[in-house]
Amino acid sequence: MKWIITFFSSSIGKKLLMSLTGLFLILFLVVHLIGNLQLLKDDGGEAFNTYAYMMTHNPLIKIVAYGNYFFIILHAFVGISIALYNKGAKGQKYAVSNSNKTTWASKNMALLGTLILAFILIHMGDFWFKMKFTDELGMKSYEGFPEVRDLYTRVSTAFSQLWIVVVYLIGMMVLSFHLWHGFQSAFQTLGLNHKKYTPLIKSVGKAYAILIPLGFAVIPIWYFLFKTM
């Protein structure tokens, strides 16, 4: 068992954790976005509310959800500890710095990540916490389901407030920068870098880093513009 501890305390072991948890979160975001797009259906919230019910009650999805919380925490914890260690390993900074050959995002992953973490906390406090732990949400009934919590109305109230919409847009921009570097970086960490497929990974990564945050961002904008009386 000693080898496992040695491995996860090595530089490459820690980076492997970052890469695998990061890739898991990348997959999660796709599923999360597909679910959220139910919010754009003009059905008074039926599709979204029943989807939210399924996500919080299906035992298999619940297990994956707990895995997801764990991976976010692990990713954040290891990421921040790596960043702190690296700051010490650099030591004194240069008086003149010249870094026009590198991307800003790649050097600020921990800052971007911490902002994402702050966003996740605000986001979960607003919707997930209110749905699971308070009685603030009304109930609705749909065919084939027991009474479900009306998260849809909560979402549309939230997105009628300009400041919440702005927080979401900033959050998605930060996520986009994190992924702009993170997506391809995860593959390099795994040891996958070859001129055959790396250009493809980089292109897919850039497309992902733009399209997924954009997809999430459309929802608050849509609600603010078209659903606010």
Binding site: I12, N86, M109, Q184, S185, G191, N193
Partner: peptide, 27 residues
């Protein structure tokens, strides 16, 4: 420190050693 795949090393290396080597080391 631990590599964040920033690429500053590759840009400054006088012998133009490539990041592919780090991937090779990782695997």
């Amino acid at each position: 420190g631990m590599c964040s795949n920033i690429g500053a090393c590759e840009a400054e290396c006088p012998k133009e050693i490539k990041l592919e080597n780090i991937a090779f080391m990782n695997r």
